[in-house]
Computed example of a mutant assay.
Amino acid sequence: MSSVYQGPGQNSQFPQGPNYPVDPMAAGPAPAPVAKEKNTIGLVALVCAVIGFIFACVPGALIIGWILLPIAFILSLVGLFARGKKKGMALAALILSIVGTLVGFIVFFTVIGNAVDESFNAEPTIAPADPANQLSDQPASDADKNNDAAGGAGDSRENPLPLGTAISGSDWTATVNSVDLDATEAVIAANPFNDAPGEGQKYILADVTLTYTGDDPQGSTPWASIDYVTIDGTTISSTDNIAVAPNQLDTLTTLYGGGSVSGNIPLLVPADTADQGVLAVEPDMFTKKKFVAVK
């Protein structure tokens, strides 16, 4: 029986040679795992993402956030694909840059929406034409309390401004001088083609003065809107009916600084509650409406 030579470090149970397996006991220790290096790019991306996210939430500093967040996004991708580098900070930077961008868009559109809303709903200036024509005979302190409770004079239908109040926007001033609450005969007589009132309706006439206070050397045409709001909250516009009023207000004329035009606006309203409604007055398209009493 042949024997197998046992050299140093060899086990007799595992014959050695090119046709025999290697003795596992003779193999050296397993190599230690290589520690991943610090991801500097991921760290820079995370810092940019954090700072960009903060600025993206500040309306006045959105542009800084929009500069830093894309940079953080790109660097985070580079950090994620770097071999032998830790991925944690790069992944956090990627997520934060995406979320920050979404937040930035939300803040941006919110700011734009508020700016547009303010532009088209600027608070008008109120100037009573006749100081004696006040909202009530109460002492000033009591009247102020009532105005505050109703949200300010003219801001609600429950607390309308008196007739003769000048309502001014940026370029135009509108004043409702008076309202004729029984003008059906006058309107019908003004033009035979005017629509006759339906059952339960009648015409009223709002005598209005529009003044151009702008400084455009080319002048401007009136943009005022005068509507009637019924007691139940329904808006009635002068364009809802076809009628030419006596001394019709000319809204097509061109006025220059300080120029004004006066005339009547016909409105077809419920006959039984005509004196219980109010007028909704907007001196121009960019100014918040104010409510004016009809009597």
Rank of each mutant, 00 (worst) to 15 (best):
G219F: 04
D232F: 03
T253L: 05
T209C: 10
G214C: 08
T234S: 01
Q248H: 15
Y212T: 08
A243M: 01
D207K: 03
V244E: 10
G219S: 12
L255G: 03
D215C: 06
T251M: 14
W223R: 13
I204L: 13
T211H: 03
S220G: 03
I204G: 03
S220K: 14
Q218F: 14
T254P: 00
P217E: 09
N241E: 05
I204K: 04
A224N: 08
T234V: 12
I242Q: 15
T221S: 14
L249E: 03
L210E: 01
L205M: 07
Q248M: 12
I231P: 04
V208E: 04
N247I: 01
T230P: 06
W223A: 14
T239S: 15
N247Y: 08
A224Q: 08
V229S: 10
A245H: 01
N241T: 13
D215P: 01
I226R: 07
T239Q: 13
N247S: 15
D250W: 06
S237R: 09
Q248V: 00
D232K: 01
A245E: 03
L255T: 10
L252S: 15
A206R: 01
D232P: 01
I226Y: 07
I242D: 12
T235K: 12
L255C: 13
D240V: 02
Y228V: 06
G257T: 13
W223L: 15
Y212P: 11
T239R: 15
P217F: 03
T230S: 02
T234E: 09
D240L: 05
G257R: 10
T234I: 06
Q248A: 11
I242E: 12
Y228C: 08
